[in-house]
Nucleic acid binder design. Structure first.
Lengths: 155, 155
DNA sequence: AGGGGATGGACAAGTAACTTGTCTATATGG
DNA sequence: CCATATAGACAAGTTACTTGTCCATCCCCT
């Protein structure tokens, strides 16, 4: 997704953002495959981090990632198949199954996180650490008000 | 895709970039639907711009978008069905079918471009026009070297 | 206490945007 | 003039979702 877009700097900006994301993810994924975590898709990495950060049920994970609980359940099933999470009944609520990150899952998070940080620090070298931090701060500001997307999932 | 990621500022940056993209696209798409272009998916918009910018065959479009020619052909088929492009045989090469943006296609580009520009200028107001331009320049710098992704499609 | 709505999860089917693989037709360069 | 590259069509498979439906469990209200 490069190429001259012409006539819309807004559309170009959108492509720049997507391009930046892909740029990072492609690189991290290629390295992960070489290090014994082949078959891991970007979404798995991010979902695993969300689980570890406390989204320990399918419904909650769905809310955090702004997807349906069914989509989240499918992601969890994939993570479980790879051995990155396991599930156990919640003793205090028989409806819930609590998802937990396994040691192998934490290993993936550690490696993946380090790889993402590598890319980020290479970027910091290219444009300067202060500039990168400013860029991140601005992006955070521009996207923070968009939590509404999670709210209109009444599922 | 919001939520605390913890332990990896690199992963957070990736999510910020993706979040920014989605933020723009969701908004533009919602408005487009209200203005007589329902069913248009983000990818259609961007593909249409690439066609207009000169990627007038499926293979060439695939190269520009860094996807296979088959994927590009499917996108073109969808655009044709909606009436945004038409195709005619290339008189100088019987293998090729030249894709052209129709008036309705140009209308979509104009509306979509204006909507993207709206979002962008709202962002400019939020963080300041100079800051936004700096952000764009940095993103361009960080993603420019990634044209290699198109090259390893030997298809 | 018990009934009703909200919530969590499972199962099924459908969709969008890709991919690989295979095939044919046409072009082109040594 | 033939080997190779390229354009496109067709088929099937994959990923990451979606809707829709169903049931079990929880929790609040009267």
């Amino acid at each position: 997704m490069i190429g001259r877009m012409a006539q819309s700097s807004g559309a170009e900006l959108a492509l720049l953002l997507l391009g930046g994301f892909h740029s990072m993810v492609d690189e991290v994924n290629a390295e992960l495959a070489k290090r014994g975590h082949a078959g891991v898709r970007p979404v798995h990495e991010f979902a695993l981090r969300a689980v570890d950060a406390g989204a320990d049920t399918a419904s909650e994970l769905g809310r955090r990632l702004s997807v349906t609980k069914q989509a989240a359940a499918q992601t969890i099933a994939a993570l479980e198949e790879f051995g990155y999470v396991d599930r156990e009944p919640d003793p205090s609520d028989a409806r819930r199954k609590r998802v937990r990150v396994t040691p192998r899952g934490h290993e993936l998070m550690a490696i993946g996180g380090a790889l993402f940080d590598d890319v980020r620090s290479r970027w910091a070298t290219r444009i300067g650490p202060a500039q990168l931090e400013t860029l991140e701060a601005h992006l955070a500001q521009l996207t923070e008000h968009r939590s509404f997307t999670a709210d209109d999932l009444q599922d």
